[in-house]
């Protein structure tokens, strides 16, 4: 047990170092190397934060789903730890996405908030995540908490496409995503230097996310260890 923790600890440090490197690179490309947008000006640089953030948030939600499904199926503690960790960090990234979107919105649209599709969807995502955390913390029995959380994790994820469709049909004010336009190839729409900056920042965010996730999982494992030691004595 001790040797694996040391190894995973070293793996985590490497991941952290890599993340830090890519963050610096990302910052350089986002703030200095990439050109300002033709219409939005410098404010567009916030997109190098916003797009990776939202994608990472969705990834986190997916991981909550996977962890929840695995847990209900196999009932292994570590899947539950994974789900909880991903939910916690998912809240963080989703919250940040909303803040970034809002800060971008003020100079770009003139308002701090608007009920357009993308912002609304992100807010709903945040609500579901927060609901998950509240549900887990309000159920005292740990096993019950894990099962109930897993149910919400699965149902919430299944609901996402439906929420997407309903909110998009309801609102179509947001600019059509300039990268994911179906008729054109991704790289035809965006200036190449911007695409590079975006990609580097996306990698940076992914690395940060996984670094945080592995650290949070470690915390969960430690908590589990403490619980087991209290119940059954030292290993």
């Amino acid at each position: 047990m001790a040797s694996t923790t040391k190894k995973s600890g070293r793996g985590r440090s490497i991941l952290g170092g890599l993340a830090f490197f890519f963050i610096l690179m990302g910052l350089y490309f986002a703030l200095i190397q990439a050109p300002p947008d033709a219409y939005q000006g410098e404010v567009q640089r916030i997109m190098y934060l916003h797009i990776p953030s939202i994608l990472t948030a969705y990834l986190s939600f997916f991981i909550v789903f996977i962890g929840s499904a695995l847990f209900l199926w196999k009932r292994e503690r570590r899947d539950d730890i994974l789900a909880y960790a991903a939910a916690e960090i998912g809240v963080l990234f989703t919250g940040l996405t909303i803040v970034e979107g809002s800060i971008w919105g003020k100079p770009a649209w003139g308002v701090w908030w608007t009920w357009d599709a993308r912002l609304t969807l992100t807010a709903i995502l945040l609500l579901i995540f927060v609901g998950y955390l509240m549900l887990r913390s309000l159920i005292e029995d740990e096993d019950q908490s894990a099962v109930c959380g897993a149910v919400l994790g699965i149902i919430g994820f299944l609901d996402i496409p439906l929420i997407h469709m309903s909110v998009y049909w309801w609102r179509t004010l947001h600019q059509p995503p300039s990268i994911l336009r179906p008729d054109k190839l991704p790289w035809e729409n965006v200036h190449p230097a911007m695409l590079i900056a975006l990609s580097i920042n996306f990698i940076a965010f992914l690395l940060v996310y996984f670094y945080l996730l592995s650290s949070r999982i470690r915390l969960g494992e430690l908590q589990e260890e403490v619980k087991k030691t209290r119940l059954y004595g030292a290993a």
Binding site: I23, G41, E42, I46, V99, I103, W104
Partner: peptide, 25 residues
Amino acid sequence: MKAWDFVFLAYGIVWSALVFYLTVL
């Protein structure tokens, strides 16, 4: 607020939040 102010505000909030969370963790 000028354009760069918004940019720095966004980047500042994001990275401080992430560092803060890591510290708490």
